[in-house]
Nucleic acid binder design. Structure first.
Lengths: 205, 205, 205, 205
DNA sequence: CATGAATGAGAGTTCATTCAT
DNA sequence: AATGAATGAACTCTCATTCAT
């Protein structure tokens, strides 16, 4: 008997099928929005009946939960590695942005869902970890930006909170148009994005 | 005059009350998402019963329609004025961005709704004008960026389509956190945003 | 203070306007059915707003009531005159049928409504007079048919109740296709109908 | 076989249950009228909740549709057989009438619904087949009557269109009072009806 | 007399969820 | 593992009716 007191009802069976179903669900959630997605639609896409999903999952919400939490877990694995390396501020930003685009590449659907739904989900206790993550995220970025300003790497005349918001949003919004397997690799997109954010789009005079 | 007057599609009634109700509806749509918003909730917020809304509007969807279309109408009034002035590429970008933040200031809720819902709404015939607008929008921005690159105002080493997407998204995503009456005026936010996008956040070496 | 304890609220004003409105209402009821007819529709047709009808009438139901009861009153004026004349059975049938088609000519809409709705209305206490009328109607017709059979005017080999039903229904169903001012006068239709019912459509051999 | 199977428009499920539910629905529609019948009422009668009906049917309207169309299909099976036999005019009329009463016996509720609702339903595209059927019906009857007049079987002094209407209506109106399992078999009713229509109710002089 | 705005009950419908098989 | 059938709550919308103006 493991430590977790989760219902073992749904925990059974091949984790592979779960993965498949979650991938399908994530895709549909991303395409149509969580609320607008019916459980029937997911089941259709998976070639089963709506009720059958409940053999695998407790509820529609728990699918969403699993999609988002496993995405965030992976994301923070990457971020924590970057932050633990204690690079210079510019290099940290570069590494975080690159990591982010890699994550978008891997979890496009989850990121798109996160983008659209996290705001109102964060209020629910079940999704408290979304707020926690955002907090941690903010701390990491703001800290790095501050270090950069203090060290003379970043401009001091910009409002640091505005800068944070702009940088944060542009990175993640990319999930709404990014298509894996397209022309640009995530690293290439990161490079271009960083070039723009760090050095601007105007020609230097 | 016994001639029958056709239904004006509930367009009658005092336009002031309509405005009030639409403002309330937009706020609720923006806060919770269109789908997750019940007509009852809007009515509650307006101090009336759900059914009473149907004296003023045909449907929940027509409220959304009116919110989005009147926002876009105003937006394009501003944009068209800027584009008609035929400024230099950098000045055009500056004017468009400033205009956009002003619009966010005036129609925060509508912009937030647009941000979240336009993608899947654009598929419906009724909301075809969303796709049209996006098309026009893209043309204006891409054209200006191309002019800027050709004229030496903007860097030629950046992928112009990626640049367009980044610029476009960051501007509008601001609607998700912007609060009118806050510390920064829309013009101030535009200034900072432009400074960042045009000249970068890194200190020039 | 008169004997009736009716609300005098709606009893006011020009009876002519009431007539007009009732004529309109009857037409719409007949065309679309009582249940499917909205009070708004009637008001539209009358060039006023739905609420305004309630100055003239207590309720939608009371319009229906007035339409049906005033039709039945007129109908029985005619029938009672015929029955009081104590004609022979064949002549009585002829007179009743002719009277009926005249009534259809005068009150087409009311008859059509009666045809469609009387069956389930008769169960409601308010419309008890519909059942009463039907009873009286049945008695008059069955009595005449019996007299005719006894006296040798009508065939004895037919089931008298079936005959009654057929005769009754065919007369009134005419209201569903009859258009006043058409090719045939009510008297002409009555003549043809009687010829058919009394003598059959087959050529005598 | 991973190929997606399109919605069969709820046409799945055991056809038996569908039949049962449609029989119940038809009964309630016939008794109270389509509009006045609530989906909840049908569900009650079927011992289930209103929402559960939607597992079997798309909508209230589609129940009506199925009731009427399957009735008409059967009806025309019978009629077409009669017409294909190319009998004499009198015999054709006799066969059509008999067939009609048999159909009333089998589908009393459907016929009653048809009688009450077909007129305004026929205007809707979905129920266009009602108008088609009526057209075919009219052609068959009028043609037979004309043949009969030409061949000397039917009286030439009657207006053939009026005759058609009378005959048509009386047959079908029977559905409003007919109770299966009563004193008279459909064939007996047909016989009496034909005797009346063909030879009249008056004694021959 | 009529309007404009609202009420409130109830309608048809949707959908996450359950559960015996 | 999955199906088929049902539940029950909630939703959007309709409509007869009311009433202050």
């Amino acid at each position: 008997m493991p430590a977790a007191k989760k219902k073992t009802t749904t925990a059974s069976a091949s984790p592979e099928r779960r993965r498949e179903l979650l991938t399908i669900a994530a895709e549909v959630f991303a395409a149509h929005g969580y609320n607008a997605t019916t459980v029937r639609r997911i089941a259709d896409e998976a070639g089963m009946l709506a009720g059958s999903l409940y053999y695998h999952f407790d509820s529609k919400e728990s699918m969403l939960d699993e999609i988002l939490s496993s995405f965030l877990t992976e994301l923070w694995d990457g971020y924590d590695a970057v932050l633990a390396a204690v690079l210079g501020p510019r290099e940290t930003i570069e590494a975080l942005v690159t990591e982010s685009f890699r994550e978008i590449d891997r979890h496009r659907a989850a990121v798109a869902i996160y983008q659209k739904e996290s705001k109102h989900l964060a209020a629910q206790p079940r999704f408290g970890y979304l707020a926690d993550s955002q907090q941690k995220f903010k701390k990491a970025w703001l800290g790095t930006l501050e270090r950069g300003v203090a060290g003379g790497a970043f401009r001091a005349d910009l409002d640091i909170r505005l800068t944070y918001r702009f940088v944060r949003d542009t990175v993640w919004v990319a999930a709404s148009w990014y298509r894996p397997g397209g022309q640009h690799s995530p690293e290439e997109i990161a490079r271009q994005y960083l070039s723009m954010v760090l050095d601007g789009i105007a020609v230097r005079t």
